[in-house]
Nucleic acid binder design. Structure first.
Length: 653
RNA sequence: UGCGGGGUGGAGCAGUCUGGUAGCUCGUUGGGCUCAUAACCCAAAGGUCACAGGUUCAAAUCCUGUCCCCGCAACCA
């Protein structure tokens, strides 16, 4: 049998899974089911990426060893997929013993082939991103996360990415199918044309990683380690993958690094990489500060996994960014699943129950509907093949509309009264047979519900055994007895369900926090193999670790009076202030508050500043301190102020 | 200021590559039906396709310019 091997990203476990991870994995599961219908022997791999400094830190914050910490979070991912009924064939962890062996052998081969070398490097390193910042000087901030960089000299192993520049260019130029959607391919081509530099693939500053053989204290750095999970999860014969399903943030690593690594090791490349978009919340990026991160479990508990699957795959064109909201989810559920598919099944089966003694009547069905069905099947399969789920579902639902219309036109309830049995039977057979085809077609997207309808149609076989050949008209056995009629998609009450999901969300958040350890580091987004949206929290951000009074007293907070304020040229967010704190000269302070305050609002206002903060240059201006402000939702600041009169220069403690 | 992505009836989107009747879902209004989950069917209202030029027999679609929105970065000590 033909094989099909697909993967999700290997999720970074510095935080618990949220709906962004779920989106990717659900899509992968749907593709798996689809490929099975097409007759493939399908292997779906997912897993967790568990090494690196961020994990070390998150673990430390939770008072756990890295291994214990990742055990917990990894299990959380695995449990999530089980809860949602996803058909995962292999769940691989980067901490798995066999994985380390695969990575080490992979390295040895690259070394032998001359694509790896050792070199000393001094540069500015961002601890948070675990990345060297090129072109940065000491004191500069990380361009990605904005945190200060540290000057680090390190001996690293390097991978000769530069050696593959032409080959990579050719790969992407000649194989437009290799990376989709096309917009991503263009970005990658542009990136390659800029010129590729060799990349560091080991670290000596990190302990929590796979050791480079005989080269302690070197451990492998994220991508050399994580990407190989796709190989270590399966036996050698299963490689290469037919499809890597990824989020758009990790395109570069999959479309540039990974092919180069594989070439260096003399291994075949994956057939295709597909990057889907971000999942936004009501058109906003999900983020901790906005408190709008959503998790799958509460949604599943309230409205069902299939409702979520259907929503994600129908509402969002695969490859584009999409927007999640409770309103849209429930709206889709009611109009498409309850009123559409659910109601069609309900009326069809009820008619058969009432008029045909619950047996599928003798007929070959209406030829026009049969023809429409064939068209719908072809068109839907075609869209599916392009991973265009939304279009495939749109086509199927168009066919559902055709049937509703057909039933009204035929009015079988009238045929029954007037005794037109032959026509009645033809009508009901047509409806039931169409429902069968629809059920098979939607099964990759809503497997649980499709299986229910399947059983109601009287089938005793598993829906998983359906193949493309079955998708032709007339395969519904005449005389088969329909079973246990019950609504598959009861209508949802918008207000009630939204409320329940929000409550469930709050509870789930609390549970996850508990799981990760109360003071878990607010590990943010940009996690290597993780899709959209930052991790963690909503509402109140976690309280920082405990300090002593001695720690606090180190911070010198003073009351200051704003003397002048002006916008910083060429910067949207910065204001340049001079602030009197009783010193001979007012301080020059640059603050990122221009979006919230006009300069004239601030002059003569009393503010609180951190007076003993190391000076720093921002946009060419020296800032000798920092203004204290509450950080509101969306990141906008509100300056601290006093109700009583306070003298300039007074210290806060 | 760069780099992306957008601006299409009340809402959300498709259509733009490959010019030629502006389409879908939801919502609204009127009617129908009663098998079905207050569902389903029919009909109607509602858009100068952001703006301005240009190419063309013909532009939502191609070209030029402008405006606006969103994300990211530069800059939130």
């Amino acid at each position: 049998m033909k094989k099909y091997f697909l993967t999700t990203p290997i999720y970074y476990v510095n935080a618990a899974p949220h709906i962004g991870h779920t989106y990717t994995t659900i899509a992968a599961d749907a593709i798996k089911r689809l490929k099975r219908i097409q007759g493939y022997d399908v292997t779906l791999v997912t897993g967790t990426d568990e090494h690196g400094q961020k994990i070390e830190r998150a673990a430390a914050a939770a008072n756990k060893s890295p291994q214990a910490f990742t055990d917990v979070v990894s299990a959380e991912f695995r449990k999530q997929w089980e809860d949602l009924g996803l058909q995962i064939d292999a769940f691989q962890r980067t901490t798995a013993p066999n994985h380390a062996k695969v990575v080490q052998e992979f390295f040895a081969t690259c070394l032998k082939n001359g694509y790896v070398y050792k070199n000393a490097y001094t540069g500015q390193y961002c601890v948070s991103c675990e990345l060297y910042v090129t072109d940065a000087k000491p004191g500069d901030n990380c361009p990605d996360c904005g945190r200060p960089t540290e000057t680090v000299t390190e001996e690293n192993f390097y991978f000769k990415l530069s050696a593959f520049q032409d080959q990579l260019l050719e790969l992407h130029e000649k194989n437009p199918e290799f990376l989709q959607p096309e917009s991503k391919r263009n970005e990658v081509l542009a990136f390659i044309r800029q010129g590729l530099k060799d990349i560091s693939i080991s670290r000596t500053t990190i302990k929590w990683g796979i050791p480079v053989p005989n080269e302690a204290p070197h451990v492998f750095y994220v991508w050399f380690d994580a990407l190989n999970t796709y190989r270590s999860a399966v036996d050698a014969a299963t490689w290469p993958a037919d499809l890597h399903l990824i989020g758009k943030e990790i395109v570069r690593f999959h479309a540039i690094f990974w092919p180069a690594f594989l070439w260096a090791a003399g291994l075949p490349l994956p057939k295709k990489i597909f990057a889907h978009g971000w999942l936004l919340f009501e058109n906003d990026k999900m983020s901790k500060s906005k408190g709008n991160i959503v998790r799958a479990t509460p949604i599943k508990n309230v409205i069902g996994a299939d409702a979520l699957r259907y929503f994600l795959l129908r509402e969002i064109p695969f490859g584009s960014d999409g927007s999640f909201s409770y309103d849209a989810l429930i709206g889709r559920y009611n109009s498409d699943l309850a009123n559409g598919l659910g109601n069609l099944c309900s009326r069809t089966l009820a008619l058969i129950q009432q008029n045909c003694d619950s047996r599928i009547p003798q007929s070959s069905g209406d030829p026009e509907i049969a023809a429409a069905a064939a068209l719908a099947v072809d068109s839907a399969l075609d869209s599916y093949e392009q991973l265009n789920f939304s279009k495939a579902l749109e086509t199927i639902w168009g066919f559902i509309g055709t049937l509703d219309k057909f039933i009204v036109e035929r009015a079988p309830w009238k045929l029954a009264k007037s005794g037109e049995t032959a026509k009645l039977h033809e009508t009901l057979y047509t409806a039931a047979e169409a429902v069968r085809l629809i059920t098979e077609l939607v099964s990759p997207v809503i497997p649980e519900s499709a299986a229910k309808i399947w059983a109601q149609l009287g089938f005793e076989t598993s829906l998983d055994s359906v193949r493309t050949d079955d998708l032709t008209w007339g395969k519904l056995p005449v005389g088969q007895t329909i079973q246990n009629l019950a609504g598959v998609f009861p209508r949802a009450d918008l207000k009630l369900m939204t409320e329940e999901m929000k409550q469930g969300e709050a509870a789930e958040l609390a549970r996850q926090k508990e799981l990760l350890g109360q003071t878990a580091a607010p590990a943010e987004a940009a996690a290597p193999a993780a899709p959209p949206a930052p991790a963690m929290a909503e509402g109140v951000s976690p309280i920082a670790p405990e300090i002593t009074i001695d720690d606090f007293i180190k911070v010198d907070l003073r009351v200051g009076l704003v003397k002048t304020a002006e916008k910083v040229k060429g910067a949207d967010k910065l204001l340049h202030l001079s602030i009197d704190i009783g010193e001979p000269e007012p301080r020059s302070i640059v603050a990122g508050i221009a979006l919230a305050y006009q300069p004239e609002q601030l002059v003569n206002r009393k503010v609180v500043i951190v007076a003993n903060l190391a000076p720093r240059k921002l946009r060419g201006l020296t800032s000798q301190g920092m203004i204290v402000a509450a950080s509101l939702e969306g990141g906008s600041p509100a300056l601290a102020a006093f109700i009583e009169e306070v003298p300039v220069g007074a210290r806060l403690k």
